[in-house]
């Protein structure tokens, strides 16, 4: 967190991110931020399906303060895992959670 990494989002200004490009303060998230972060994950255009996934993650996080488990995500969005990787090629954790402005996933590697 000592690193002074920043992104510059049009119309929002500068935001601190960590080495992996996750925003440091989930409270600063907005749709403009999501669009910017999508670009860093190889997603050039956020379609309706992208937003469905991002909004699901975002709402879940706002309600429970955690990210949903992957099965739950698939079930509740109706997207299978293959579809999730089509939408976010870098995967649900690295891609979708980042774009939705959630904290960086942790756990056993």
């Amino acid at each position: 967190m000592s690193d002074e990494l920043k992104i510059n989002v049009e119309g929002v200004g500068e935001l601190a991110v960590d080495e992996d490009g996750f925003i440091e303060d989930p409270g600063k998230w907005s749709e403009a931020v999501a669009k910017h972060l999508a670009g860093t994950e190889g997603v050039t255009e956020l379609s309706e399906d992208h937003w469905k996934l991002v909004n699901y993650l975002r709402n879940y996080y706002m309600e429970f303060n955690i990210a949903p488990m992957i099965r739950k995500l698939c079930k509740e969005t109706g997207f299978n895992l293959k579809k999730v990787y089509e939408l976010f090629p870098s995967g649900p954790a690295k891609g979708a959670c980042k774009v939705a402005g959630l904290p960086k996933p942790t756990g056993c590697v």
Binding site: M1, D18, E24, D25, P26, G27, F64, N65, I66, A67, P103, K104, T106
Partner: peptide, 11 residues
């Protein structure tokens, strides 16, 4: 200062 931002507290 940072815990609430970078960690999922319930987990």
């Amino acid at each position: 200062a940072n815990l609430g931002k970078i960690c999922e507290v319930p987990n």
